[in-house]
Simulated assay, not measured.
Amino acid sequence: MSIGNSPEDDRPSDDLDPTPPPADGQATAPSDDRPSIGTVLRQARVDAGLTVDEVSTSTRVRIPIVHAIEEDDFSRCGGDVYARGHIRTIARAVGVDPAPLLAQYADAHGGQSAPTPAKPLFEAERIRSDRRRPNWTAAMVAAIVIVIGFVGFTAFGGDNGSTDKKAAEGAPSATAKPKPKPTHKPTKQPKADPSDSAIAAAPRDKVTVKINAANGRSWISAKDHNGRIMFDGLLEQGQSKTFQDSQKVDLVLGDAGAIQLYVNGKQVSNEFQPGQVERLTYTKGDPEVG
C-alpha cells in the first residue's frame, strides 16, 4: 500500500465493512487516489533519462536512500525534517514541483515534524569526499606579491648598478666641480587594503568557520582536510561553534535554515529553508561555498 493512501482502501469489500454508514449530512472523506511520492519521483527520473546514481551525485543523497524513497520507505531518512528535505532536493533534480509532494507527505505523516535525534541522522547523512577546487584567490595574491617584489628589486637594483659604474670610471679632477648626486626617491609601493579576514582578526593562513544556531537547533557535522571529525552532534538554539583548519573545513547542516555562518570573519549570506540539509566546504580563500 502506498504512503498517503487511506487504510480503508485495503478492505476486501464494502459488505464486510463493520463501520456503519455516516449519518445524514455527514461528509465522507474522499479516498486519496494520487500516485505515491516514490512513484512520482521514480517516474519523473525515468522520464528525465536519469539513473539513481546520477540523481545521488547531483543531490548528494546516498543511493540506498534514493532507492528507499522511490519505494516510499522514509525510515532511512533520519526523521520527518530530513525526509522533507530529501523529497524537495530529489524532486528538483528530476524536474518535479516539490510542493504537492511535500503536502502529500504532510497528509500522510502529519504537518508538524518531531525532533530528530542526532545519531540516526549521523547514520543517514555522511560527508562525501569532494574534489577540491583550485584556490584561484591565493594564486592571484601570490602573483601580485611576486610582481610587486620584482618591481621593487628592479628599481633599487638598477640604481645601485649605475652608481657602481660611475665609481669605476674614476674620480673627477680637483678642478672639476662635483656634480650633485641625484636624490633617488624609492618607489612607493601601494598599500594593500585590509581583507575581511584581517578586519575580523581571523588568521589568513587558516580557514575559520563559525556556526551560530540563531533560528533554532540543528544537527551539524564538521571535518578537517584530513577527514577527521571535529564535531558531530546537536547545536541548541543560541549556541555556536568555531572550527579552524590549515586548508579546509567540510560541513553538513541538518537544518540549514536555523544556521548563521561566518567564514574567515565574514558572515555568509544564504537562502536556506527550514529543514534543508546542506553540505558545504570552505577554504582560506572563501567565503565561497566549496
Score class of each variant (00 low, 15 high):
L121S: 06
L251D: 05
E278I: 06
R131V: 13
P20M: 08
A118C: 00
P190V: 01
N212G: 00
D245C: 02
K210I: 07
A258H: 12
G111N: 06
R84I: 01
E271L: 08
Q43C: 01
Y282N: 05
M140H: 13
D14E: 12
T19V: 15
I37R: 04
K166M: 13
E169N: 07
V55C: 01
V94N: 02
I65Q: 15
I3F: 10
L234N: 03
V252F: 06
D9P: 00
Y82W: 08
G158Q: 12
Q267F: 09
K179G: 10
D9Q: 14
N5V: 11
A214G: 00
V268E: 09
R84N: 03
D245T: 02
H184P: 00
V277H: 05
P172H: 03
A174H: 10
A44W: 03
I65R: 11
L102Y: 02
A44I: 05
I211H: 05
V277M: 08
R84W: 00
T28M: 11
T187L: 15
V268R: 14
D232V: 03
V252A: 10
T154H: 11
A201D: 12
N160S: 15
A174Q: 11
I146M: 10
G110E: 00
S36F: 05
E70W: 11
F150Y: 10
D205W: 03
T57G: 08
R88E: 12
G78H: 04
P190I: 02
R60Y: 07
D17N: 15
G285W: 05
A99R: 13
G79F: 01
S75F: 06
T116N: 11
D130W: 08
T281Y: 07
D255R: 03
Q267G: 13
H225M: 04
S36V: 05
A91W: 06
T137Q: 09
A48E: 07
I148T: 14
A108K: 01
K248S: 14
T116M: 09
A258G: 02
D72W: 07
R42V: 00
I90Q: 00
I63C: 02
N160V: 14
Q189V: 15
G233Y: 04
D193G: 09
D17L: 01
A171Q: 12
P35A: 08
T163F: 11
T208C: 02
A93K: 03
K248P: 00
S246R: 12
A222P: 04
Q43Y: 01
Y282H: 10
G49A: 04
Q273K: 11
V207T: 14
I229T: 14
S269Q: 12
P182A: 07
G111P: 01
E8N: 07
I87F: 06
V151N: 04
A23N: 10
S6I: 03
T89Y: 00
S36P: 07
L235C: 01
S58T: 14
T39G: 03
P100T: 02
R11F: 14
K210E: 14
V141Q: 11
D72V: 04
T208Y: 01
R228T: 12
S31K: 13
D72A: 05
D73H: 11
I220V: 15
E71W: 05
R133I: 09
D17E: 09
D224A: 02
Q267C: 03
S56I: 00
D53Q: 15
E123G: 07
D196S: 07
G161E: 13
V209G: 11
N264L: 04
D24I: 05
P18K: 01
A168Q: 15
G38R: 14
D232K: 07
L234R: 04
